[in-house]
Nucleic acid binder design. Structure first.
Lengths: 82, 82
DNA sequence: CTATATTTGTGCGTATGTATG
DNA sequence: ACATACATACGCACAAATATA
């Protein structure tokens, strides 16, 4: 198996940007498919060991970039229109 | 009757820890018996005036400490094995 | 079997406080 | 002063499991 992707709290790149970058790479690699959910905030917390706010900011970044759409109470999904 | 137990939102101790502490003391005092239910999340909300998430965190704390077990759709029970 | 109520599980939205660089 | 990041705590909505009428 591949080495698990991690985040570096001491990097110059903010952690929430690092998380967003990882998710973006997964989308572009086809590991996360259009109209399919991206990991929930809770899952991101657990996977990367970050606070919920940090997970939320990562998702917000992808949303601002048009890569995902978020549905209240349901989750975020890879933008179907790509 | 005894004065109703309350929670202090301004305490240094998080509210969910305070709630857990109160429930633990009831278990140790034999007011909550093994294999018998602890108050539901809704009851804890009402009794202590806290949010459901706070009540859930209190229960989760007791569960992590092995004091209670939780069954979806039923509730949480004082660990029978004590 | 169906319907309803209860309870826990999950998910997002928001606000506040603290600490650090 | 500001951005980042953590933790806490409120809220709302819906799903899933269970119990009961």
């Amino acid at each position: 198996m591949a080495t698990r992707q991690t985040v570096d709290p001491d990097s110059a790149t903010p952690v929430y940007v690092q998380v967003a970058d990882i998710l973006r790479s997964r989308i572009e690699a086809g590991q996360l498919l259009p109209d399919r959910p991206v990991p929930s905030e809770t899952q991101l917390q657990q996977e990367f060991g970050v606070a919920r706010g940090t997970a939320r900011k990562a998702i917000a970044l992808l949303r601002d970039q048009g890569l995902v759409v978020t549905v209240k109470g349901r989750g975020s999904y890879v933008n179907p229109g790509r």
